[in-house]
């Protein structure tokens, strides 16, 4: 499917194909999410050289390595901080952060809220698979209640995080949620996020089949991907079978939009310009003199 006037998208053009097949498990949703991102990048006509991917630690963190772009695989929970420095220093780059539910909300939760507050132009994709997959399946801030993980062997007793609600409340410019089942919609959502001048946060519901799915008896990969919309089931006749699923009602699409000035713009106009510096996208990487 090619958007008008754009060459047909071939994902191989955006991958370090020599590294494939990737390390992710069979049926892992992260691959689909990656396709959606690269597809959106293609349709937004972002040059690979200008694309900077910053990823944290975890399965989501490893996604970046397959992208034929400037990729930075940084420390656990901190990709937003690295991206903040990068985006401030290099406003000419398209900075995209790929993070996971644990990376972004647990260890990196503080950075998320401040990145949202700051509204510095970048796109943050949080791949939510409800689990710490890389470390073998421990409970994460988004693990649904009652779910089994290696650290909740008797069922998760903690309530879960609504990442989008958090981001919206923290003032993120654009907040959206998509799911891997809906690749095209997800791609379109990411396009909006990429095009947004400010901090955009996209939560992507992505399945961990091999660890989370198996542990919780959620079925095969196709079953899990279909389950992403399971909560759409009508309750007008009462649900005859109870089964907990993702608690956050699965609203997808754009969830919030806070029209606020982009931080970099503000910094350049309010702080740098009075000193005779800072064009629209002036960076600080080049030697000044």
């Amino acid at each position: 499917m090619a958007a008008e006037g754009i060459d047909e998208f071939d994902i191989r053009d955006y991958l370090r194909t020599e590294l494939l097949p990737h390390f992710m498990c069979p049926g892992c949703g992260h691959g689909i999410a990656l396709r959606a991102l690269l597809w959106a990048v293609h349709e937004e006509r972002i040059a690979k050289d200008q694309l900077a991917i910053v990823t944290g630690i975890g399965c989501s963190g490893r996604v970046g390595g397959y992208i034929d772009a400037n990729t930075f695989h940084v420390t656990h929970g901190r990709p937003l901080t690295f991206a903040t420095g990068l985006a401030l220093a290099r406003p000419d780059l398209e900075v995209v952060v790929i993070t996971g539910d644990g990376d972004c909300l647990a260890i990196g939760g503080n950075h998320l809220i401040h990145a949202c507050r700051r509204n510095l132009r970048m796109t943050c994709l949080m791949l939510n698979n409800e689990i710490y997959g890389m470390t073998g399946g421990q409970v994460s801030p988004t693990t649904s209640e009652a779910r089994l993980t290696t650290t909740t062997p008797y069922g998760n007793a903690e309530p879960t995080f609504d990442a989008c609600g958090l981001a919206a409340a923290a003032g993120a410019g654009l907040v959206g949620r998509g799911m891997t089942l809906q690749t095209v919609a997800l791609k379109n959502l990411i396009r909006e996020a990429l095009a947004y001048r400010g901090f955009s946060f996209v939560e992507i519901l992505s399945d961990c089949t091999e660890i989370f799915g198996r542990k919780n008896d959620l079925g095969s990969s196709p079953e899990m991907i279909l389950r992403q919309k399971g909560s759409m089931r009508p309750d007008f006749y009462g649900n005859t079978v109870e089964h907990p699923f993702r608690p956050n009602n699965l609203t997808t699409g754009i969830i919030a939009r806070n029209e606020r000035p982009e931080y970099g713009d503000t910094y350049r106009s309010e702080v740098l310009a009075p000193h005779g510096h800072g064009g629209a996208a002036a960076g600080v990487s080049a030697p000044v003199e």
Binding site: L15, G29, G31
Partner: peptide, 16 residues
Amino acid sequence: HLCEWLCPDFAIRIES
């Protein structure tokens, strides 16, 4: 194109 889009491993390609 559905199979292509949903393949997590980029293994399917449809030349339209």
